[in-house]
Deep mutational scan, measured.
Amino acid sequence: DAPDEFRDPLMDTLMTDPVRLPSGTIMDRSIILRHLLNSPTDPFNRQTLTESMLEPVPELKEQIQAWMR
C-alpha cells in the first residue's frame, strides 16, 4: 500500500498530481477539480477555493513517481 502522505485525503487513492490548497491540505488535482465543479470551496474548511489557488507540489509528485517504479 502507498504511504499515507501519497494518498488523497478525500478519496484515499494514490495521488498522481498533488496540489496544495491554501489551507495547507495536499490533494490530487483531479479530485479537487471534480469537487470544485460542484462547490467552489475547500472541502475541509468550506473557504472559497478556485483552481487558480491550487499550488503544485512537484517534490511530492517526484517522490510518488519514484515509489511507483
Rank of each mutant, 00 (worst) to 15 (best):
A66V: 09
R29W: 08
H35Y: 11
Q63T: 09
D28A: 02
R34V: 09
R34L: 13
V19C: 06
I31P: 00
P40V: 07
F6W: 09
D28F: 10
L36V: 05
P40G: 12
Q63E: 11
M11A: 13
M27H: 04
A66D: 15
R29I: 06
P58T: 10
L36I: 10
P40F: 09
I32W: 00
E59C: 10
K61V: 07
S39D: 13
E62V: 11
L10E: 04
T13D: 05
I31W: 07
L36D: 00
D17Y: 05
L60V: 05
N38T: 15
M27T: 04
M27D: 00
S52K: 11
F6P: 15
T25S: 09
E62K: 14
E51N: 07
E5H: 15
K61S: 08
P3Q: 05
D12M: 14
E51L: 11
D4P: 15
D8W: 03
E51Y: 09
R29L: 10
P3R: 07
R20I: 06
T16A: 10
D28K: 00
V57W: 07
L33P: 01
K61N: 06
D17G: 02
P43E: 02
I26L: 04
E51V: 13
M68N: 07
E55Y: 08
I64K: 01
P56L: 08
P18C: 05
T25K: 14
D28E: 11
F44I: 07
S23M: 05
D1T: 13
D28H: 03
M27Q: 02
M53E: 11
W67K: 07
L14W: 05
E59G: 11
R46A: 14
P18D: 01
T50Q: 09
R46M: 14
E51S: 11
R7I: 09
N45M: 06
Q63S: 10
H35K: 04
W67A: 07
T16M: 14
S23E: 03
R20A: 05
D17R: 03
P58Q: 10
E51I: 13
T16Q: 12
A2C: 15
R20S: 06
V57D: 06
P58L: 10
P18Y: 02
I26V: 11
F6M: 07
R34P: 02
S52I: 09
D8C: 10
E59M: 11
F6K: 02
I32K: 00
L60K: 02
Q63I: 11
R7C: 12
T25F: 15
A66G: 09
P18I: 03
E55V: 14
E62D: 12
N38Q: 13
R34M: 13
V57R: 04
P18R: 02
I31N: 09
S39M: 08
F44C: 06
S39P: 01
V57F: 08
T13K: 08
A2N: 05
R20D: 01
P9F: 05
E59K: 12
E62R: 13
I32L: 06
E5G: 10
F44T: 05
N38R: 12
R34S: 12
L33H: 06
D4S: 14
D42E: 06
E5V: 11
D42L: 03
T41H: 09
S30N: 11
T48H: 15
S52V: 10
M68H: 15
S30P: 11
M68T: 08
N45R: 06
R20Q: 07
L21V: 03
I32M: 01
P43C: 05
T41D: 07
R69P: 11
S39L: 06
P58D: 09
M15R: 01
P18N: 01
M11T: 13
T25D: 05
I26F: 03
L21S: 00
Q65G: 09
M27E: 01
T48G: 11
I64Q: 00
S52Y: 11
R20W: 05
V57N: 05
D8H: 04
T50M: 10
T13N: 07
R34K: 14
S30W: 12
R7L: 12
E55D: 09
D28C: 07
S23N: 07
R46E: 14
T41P: 02
L21Y: 01
I26N: 01
N38V: 14
S52N: 12
S23H: 05
V57L: 13
E62T: 11
G24Y: 03
R69E: 15
D1I: 14
T50P: 02
T25V: 15
M15T: 02
S52A: 14
E51W: 10
M68K: 08
L49C: 06
M53N: 07
R29F: 07
P43R: 02
D8V: 02
T13Q: 08
M68I: 15
S39I: 07
P56W: 08
R34H: 11
R34D: 09
H35C: 10
E59N: 09
Q47M: 12
P9Q: 06
L14N: 02
S23D: 07
L14A: 04
M53P: 01
Q47D: 13
P58Y: 09
L37R: 14
P40T: 10
N45A: 06
Q47K: 11
T48E: 13
L33D: 03
M68P: 08
S23Q: 04
L49P: 00
N38F: 14
L14R: 03
H35L: 12
L54V: 04
E59L: 11
L33Y: 07
P43K: 01
A2Q: 06
F44R: 03
Q63P: 00
T48K: 13
R69D: 15
T50L: 10
D8T: 03
R46I: 06
P56S: 12
D12F: 15
L54M: 05
T50K: 15
P3V: 04
D28W: 05
I32F: 02
I26D: 00
V19H: 03
T16R: 12
P22V: 04
Q63V: 10
L49Y: 02
T48R: 13
Q65W: 14
L49N: 01
L54G: 01
T50R: 09
P3I: 04
P9V: 04
T50N: 12
N38G: 11
T48A: 14
M15E: 01
K61P: 01
L60I: 06
M68C: 13
R69T: 14
I26C: 06
L36M: 08
W67I: 06
S39K: 07
M27G: 01
T25H: 13
D8M: 02
R69N: 14
K61C: 09
S52L: 11
D12Y: 14
D12K: 15
Q63C: 11
L36N: 00
R29N: 04
D4Y: 14
R46W: 13
D28R: 00
M11E: 13
R46H: 15
I32D: 00
I31A: 09
E62M: 12
P40K: 13
R20L: 08
L14S: 02
T13G: 06
A2W: 13
L10R: 04
E5I: 13
Q47A: 12
P58W: 09
Q63G: 05
P22N: 02
I32G: 00
I64F: 02
P9D: 05
L37M: 14
R69F: 11
L60G: 00
S52E: 15
S39Y: 10
Q47V: 10
L36H: 02
S30C: 13
E62S: 11
G24A: 04
S52P: 08
D42H: 03
E62L: 13
Q65N: 12
I26S: 00
A66R: 13
E59A: 12
P43M: 03
M68Q: 11
L14G: 01
